[in-house]
Amino acid sequence: MDKVTSTINEAYENCYAGSNTEWRLLSARAKAQNIVDVCKDISFKKVLEVGAGDGSILQYLDEWGFSKEMYALEIVESAAELIKKRNLKSLVEAKLFDGYQIPYPDNSFDVVILSHVLEHVEHERLIIRELKRVSKYIVIEVPLDYRFGVENRMKHFLAYGHINMYTPSLIRFLLKTEALDIRADKTSLIPPATTKYNEFVNKKAPKSILKSFKIELEYKVKKILGSLLGQNRTEKFANAYTILTEKSDRKLEIF
């Protein structure tokens, strides 16, 4: 089985250096809430997050009592160490893996989480099959990068390490063709607080009441229009898509 290349490994080794803790936590809160929302009808005792980063999502899930036991996998030591330093009460272990082979036996977990990881993965179906091997349920969240004018933003996405792009329909198709049944899903917009932080802190744009008002207004207008115009428009406005799948006994028939 393939493993993450040394080039990608090196690129992510220093990814968590610096003082971006506040930004990562702010971004992670919405992601964690999306996970809770699609899993609201199911309770889990043993959870694995693959590609857990610095553990920001796990921190919220730990605080909210999402699971009795949580595990984390990462491809770089620096990230695994940051997860351990959070001292999460439900964290059993955080360790390294090669990016594809999950070092746990079949059916070890109730649910595996893959949040904002699949867009970085060279061989999507290999990791999805590993997730399915170790867990009955899988939660995947991806950014919705693919939209009109995407060709003009290629450098922007590549700068973030995004080598795959999805729409809700494309990710549903991918998962269904891997014999996974969809249990719940959700589209979401970037919260105004996150957009403001990115604009005024990350990008160092001058703060202004007018700019803040525009950010709040755009968010509210998209929410209202989405609720009025239906699923198709909601998905076009959305920034992320979260989906809960369940392993099935179906076999994929390829003709």
Score class of each variant (00 low, 15 high):
residue 145 D to S: 07
residue 146 Y to G: 06
residue 147 R to H: 10
residue 246 E to Q: 13
residue 212 S to Y: 03
residue 102 I to R: 05
residue 175 L to T: 00
residue 128 I to T: 02
residue 172 R to C: 10
residue 198 N to K: 14
residue 16 Y to D: 02
residue 155 K to C: 09
residue 119 E to W: 12
residue 73 L to A: 02
residue 234 T to M: 15
residue 6 S to C: 06
residue 96 L to Q: 05
residue 101 Q to G: 09
residue 23 W to S: 13
residue 18 G to M: 04
residue 97 F to W: 12
residue 111 V to G: 09
residue 105 P to S: 08
residue 172 R to M: 11
residue 247 K to S: 07
residue 39 C to L: 07
residue 10 E to W: 06
residue 27 S to Q: 12
residue 111 V to L: 09
residue 189 L to G: 04
residue 224 I to C: 13
residue 61 L to C: 01
residue 82 L to Y: 04
residue 252 L to V: 14
residue 204 K to S: 14
residue 128 I to P: 01
residue 78 S to R: 08
residue 38 V to A: 10
residue 56 S to Y: 04
residue 9 N to Y: 08
residue 182 I to C: 01
residue 193 A to Y: 09
residue 217 L to R: 00
residue 223 K to W: 06
residue 194 T to A: 12
residue 8 I to S: 13
residue 239 N to H: 14
residue 28 A to N: 06
residue 106 D to I: 09
residue 190 I to P: 02
residue 109 F to K: 02
residue 124 E to N: 12
residue 12 Y to A: 00
residue 193 A to R: 11
residue 176 K to Y: 08
residue 203 K to R: 14
residue 121 V to P: 08
residue 168 P to M: 10
residue 205 A to Y: 13
residue 61 L to H: 03
residue 156 H to Y: 13
residue 248 S to V: 01
residue 197 Y to T: 01
residue 49 E to H: 03
residue 83 I to N: 04
residue 47 V to Q: 00
residue 59 Q to N: 11
residue 131 L to G: 03
residue 197 Y to H: 11
residue 39 C to Q: 06
residue 80 A to F: 05
residue 178 E to I: 01
residue 195 T to G: 04
residue 115 S to H: 10
residue 30 A to T: 13
residue 95 K to T: 08
residue 159 A to K: 15
residue 134 V to W: 09
